[in-house]
Design a protein around this nucleic acid. Structure first.
Length: 420
RNA sequence: GAGCUUGUAGCUCAGUUGGUUAGAGCGCCAGGUUGUGGCCCUGGAGGCCGUGGGUUCAAAUCCCAUCAGGCUCCCCA
C-alpha cells in the first residue's frame, strides 16, 4: 500500500471507534472507583512552563534531559507534560488548595508526552490515570493509594501482577545511604558502566536499577537502603507494610527499586506484569514529601501513583480480557419510499426523547440493504415502514434477536420498548 | 542515539528457481427473495506489489538508495 500523504507523528496513534469503547469503559471504571474512594478529578492544561517540569521532575532525569517536547513563543517556554504529579502540585500551590481543608484527594486521566523511541508499550503520546493525596504524611495515605492501584487491575481482571515495594527514605536517611553506597562503589569506580559513572556523583541511587552487565556484581553486594533508614522513615515503612498485610495486599520488597523522578521520598512502589514484554511496569508511584515546597508551596507531604492506560490494554489483550461492550442501537427504522422515509426522520426524535437510541438508513438504499445495515449496527428492534403501514397505522415491529415481528400501532410499540 | 526486522487490496496474509492481464480469506457493494438481516450461492468494486534508481529480453521477486513502520537496548506508564 502506498504511504498516505498525511499520517500521525511517530509514536502518536489514533484511537478508532472500535477501540474507543474500551477506553470509555476504563475511564468510567476509574471515575466510579475513584469516587468510591472519595477522590475528586482535577484537569490541568496539556502544556506547562518548562521550569516547572525541570524543577519538579528533576534536571538530570531522563525524562527532562532527553524526552521533553518543548518550544517557545516569545518570552514563554512551553512543554508538553511528561507526567502529571508536578502539574497537579503546581495547581495545588497556585490555587491554595490546602485552604479547602483536610487532605486533597485528587485523580486525573489524560494524555502525556515523552519524546522516546516508540516500542511495545511505549508511545510518544500515551495516557495515564493516577491519584494524588496532598497533605498527609500518614502511612494510611500510602496504603490507600496502593490499594486503589491494585484494586483497579483486579477489577479489570488482571490478576497476575506483582507489587514491588521499597523505601528510599527521607533526605537524612538517603544522604546516609548515598554515602554508604558511594563508599561501597568507589574502589571499583573504574569498572562501572559509563552511565553509572555519570550517576555516581549526581544521583548514585539510580545506579541500583542499572541493567548494565558490568554493574551487577557491585549492585548485588551493595548495602541495602532499608538498613540506613532513620527512625521516622523506618517506622513509616514498617507501618505501610503492616497495613498492606492487614488488607491482604501481597507485595515483594525490592531494595533496588528506585524511581525515575527526583521528587520521591520514603515509599516507592511499582506494579509489574509479565504480559507486557520489555516495558513491564503497569503503574508506579510513591511518596513525595518535599515537592510541594520545592515548587513554592507550603510544607505538604504527599503520595501518589500513575498508571499507563495503553499498558493496561496490552495486558488485557494478552490475557484475553475484552473491555467494554459491542456497539448497538435500540431501534432501526427501515423505510420504503419517500413518504416512509419522511415518517422515519420525524419519528427518530420521538424515540430518542424516550431515552432510546434510534437510527435509520442515510443512503436511500433497498430494504434488504437496510435490514443488513440494521443487523450490522446490532440493532435490537427494527420498525419497518412502507405504504401499507402508513395507511393502516400499524407498523411492522421486528425483534431482531428473536426474528419475530408483529403489526402494532406506535403507541403499542412505545409501550413495548419502554417495558424493557 | 544504536542494533535487528518488515513494507503485496480497507484488514490478515499467499506469491514457486526473476517469465503471460498479481491471488486468497475476511470486509465492502449488488443480485439470488419487485417489502425483510444473520447461513448459503453468484457477481462486482478495490493494488503503478512503500518510493526512486539499477541489473535483465523480462523484476512484487535480484542489487543500491530512500521513506515509513515494528521490536530491542537505555529509561519509563
Amino acid at each position: 500500500m502506498a504511504q498516505p500523504k498525511y499520517t500521525t507523528h511517530l509514536g502518536m496513534v489514533d484511537i478508532l471507534p472500535d477501540d474507543v469503547r474500551k477506553w470509555q469503559y476504563l475511564e468510567n471504571l476509574i471515575r466510579e472507583e475513584a469516587e468510591k474512594f472519595n477522590f475528586e478529578e482535577i484537569r490541568t492544561p496539556i502544556m506547562e512552563q518548562t521550569e516547572l517540569i525541570v524543577r519538579g521532575v528533576g534536571q538530570l532525569t531522563d525524562i527532562v534531559s532527553k524526552e521533553i517536547f518543548s518550544f517557545s513563543r516569545g518570552e514563554d517556554n512551553y512543554v508538553l507534560r511528561p507526567e502529571l504529579t508536578a502539574p497537579v502540585v503546581r495547581s495545588f500551590v497556585e490555587h491554595h488548595l490546602e485552604q479547602r481543608g483536610g487532605s486533597q484527594k485528587l485523580y486525573y486521566i489524560g494524555p502525556m508526552f515523552r519524546a522516546e523511541r516508540p516500542q511495545k508499550g511505549r508511545q510518544r503520546q500515551f495516557h495515564q490515570f493516577g491519584l494524588e493525596v496532598l497533605g498527609s504524611d500518614d502511612p494510611v495515605a500510602d496504603v490507600e493509594i496502593i490499594a486503589f492501584m491494585v484494586h483497579i487491575y483486579k477489577k479489570v481482571g488482571i490478576t497476575n501482577t506483582s507489587l514491588k515495594l521499597n523505601s528510599i527514605g527521607d533526605p537524612e536517611s538517603r544522604d546516609a545511604y548515598k554515602q554508604a553506597l558511594k563508599d561501597h562503589l568507589k574502589p571499583n569506580y573504574e569498572k562501572l558502566s559509563d552511565v553509572s559513572k555519570k550517576r555516581f556523583e549526581k544521583n548514585p541511587l539510580r545506579i541500583l536499577d542499572s541493567k548494565e552487565e558490568e554493574d551487577q556484581q557491585f549492585i548485588e553486594s551493595a548495602p541495602v537502603i532499608t538498613e540506613y533508614l532513620n527512625e521516622s522513615s523506618l517506622s513509616h515503612y514498617e507501618k505501610v507494610k503492616e497495613y498492606l498485610n492487614d488488607l491482604e495486599i501481597p507485595f515483594e520488597e525490592d531494595p533496588h527499586l528506585v524511581r525515575g523522578m527526583d521528587y520521591y521520598t520514603k515509599t516507592a512502589f511499582e506494579l509489574i506484569s509479565p504480559d507486557l514484554g520489555a516495558q513491564d511496569a503497569l503503574a508506579g508511584g510513591g511518596r513525595y514529601d518535599l515537592l510541594v515546597e520545592e515548587i513554592g508551596g507550603p510544607k505538604t507531604p504527599a503520595v501518589g501513583f500513575a498508571a499507563g492506560m495503553e499498558r493496561l490494554f496490552i495486558a488485557c489483550e494478552e490475557l484475553g480480557i475484552e473491555l467494554g461492550t459491542k456497539k448497538s442501537v435500540d431501534v432501526y427504522i427501515v423505510t420504503l419510499g419517500d413518504a416512509a422515509r419522511k415518517w422515519g426522520l420525524n419519528h427518530l426524535p420521538k424515540l430518542r426523547a424516550q431515552g432510546l437510541s434510534a437510527t435509520m438508513d442515510y443512503k436511500g438504499r433497498s430494504m434488504k440493504s437496510q435490514m443488513k445495515d440494521a443487523d450490522r449496527e446490532n440493532s435490537r428492534y427494527a420498525i419497518i415502514v412502507g405504504d401499507h403501514e402508513l395507511e393502516s397505522g400499524k407498523f411492522t415491529f421486528r425483534d431482531m434477536k428473536e426474528s419475530e415481528e408483529e403489526a402494532l400501532s406506535m403507541d403499542e410499540i412505545f409501550k413495548h420498548l419502554l417495558a424493557k
